[in-house]
């Protein structure tokens, strides 16, 4: 599952034009001086400007600064304070939803906040994308797919945003057992990815996983080859190549690719484990008992991944 972030900095350029203190805070954030911005914004929020309708923005900026300086709880508290003063602010709802989601992807409040933000500000692609992510991680694939569909139609999205949206939409459509639509979305993501600099192998790998899951092995192999051409160190693609060779009973090549997967980058624990499992089996086929048993020992000594 991909969890991606659209640039929060969009709020820095939002209208309406702020009063002086707000302008100062924005500039401090642009310069990377969050500590100063926190002081400025805290002072601002305690001033009489609190009653102005656009004053939701200082809460948002302050929360961003707290979050960037590792004070997640204070960021959340700030946003809750803001929502108390401005209960209808979609920006505050969205930002609080995002933070709660990052803190705990299964948090139902995060889902409620993001849903509300989408309802109040239907033209906000960021809110829709975050809501889609929350939905994807909480088995609400219908919501995920429809939110991404709506987000993609909104104007002004750059390629990076589209890449992430198409990829997540494809994943959710696949979960909904809509293979044609899922493939279409993932193909679009892959096409954008091929144009992107730098190329993101993790996004392309989502497409590989879809194709493998749907039994479209040949196509998957082509995408794997493309990934390895562009990102030769990408471990998950080497692992897929190893699996393909294993299926084709090309034992030596399977071992070679599994080793490359272990040496590569981008592997998570599950991939590393899968590579060792595959090595154990293929060494055993070759009669290399000592190597096979060493791999087995590695697998057994590393707590097994399981799907409860």
């Amino acid at each position: 599952m991909i969890v991606c972030t659209l640039p929060l900095l969009v709020i820095l350029s939002q209208a309406p034009s702020p009063p002086g203190a707000l302008s100062t805070a924005r500039e401090q954030i642009r310069q990377g001086n969050c500590a100063a911005a926190i002081d400025t914004l805290t002072l601002l929020l305690h001033s009489s400007a609190k009653s102005r309708p656009e004053v939701a923005v200082p809460y948002q900026l302050l929360a961003v600064c707290y979050e960037r300086s590792g004070q997640l709880d204070r960021a959340i508290d700030t946003l809750r304070d803001g929502l108390r003063d401005h209960p209808a602010s979609p920006a505050l709802e969205r930002t609080l939803g995002e933070l709660l989601f990052h803190q705990d992807p299964s948090n139902p409040e995060a889902g409620q906040l993001l849903a509300s933000a989408v309802k109040t500000a239907p033209q906000d692609p960021e809110a829709r994308h975050y809501y889609a992510q929350w939905a994807a991680l909480n088995n609400r694939d219908e919501i995920c797919a429809s939110q991404e569909q709506a987000a993609i139609r909104l104007p002004g999205l750059n390629n990076l945003a589209l890449l992430q949206m198409y990829a997540l939409q494809g994943i959710c459509l696949n979960h909904l057992d809509k293979p044609a639509a899922a493939k279409s979305a993932l193909e679009k993501a892959f096409a954008i990815d091929l144009r992107q600099k730098p190329f993101d192998p993790a996004i392309a790998y989502q497409y590989v996983q879809f194709l493998m899951g749907r039994g479209q092995n040949e196509e998957a192999r082509e995408v794997v080859a493309e990934i390895l051409r562009r990102s030769p160190q990408f471990g998950p693609a080497h692992l897929e190549a190893a699996k393909s060779f294993d299926h084709d009973r090309q034992t030596e090549k399977a071992i070679q690719e599994a080793k490359a997967a272990l040496l590569g980058e981008g592997d998570d624990d599950a991939n590393i484990r899968a590579a060792h499992v595959l090595l154990a089996k293929n060494y055993f086929i070759l009669g290399k008992t000592a190597e096979a048993e060493a791999e087995q020992q590695w697998v057994e000594s590393h707590a097994g991944a399981s799907k409860p």
Partner: peptide, 9 residues
């Protein structure tokens, strides 16, 4: 395990 090296139910 399955093809991903994962134990299932």
């Amino acid at each position: 395990y399955n093809d991903d090296g994962i134990a299932v139910s």
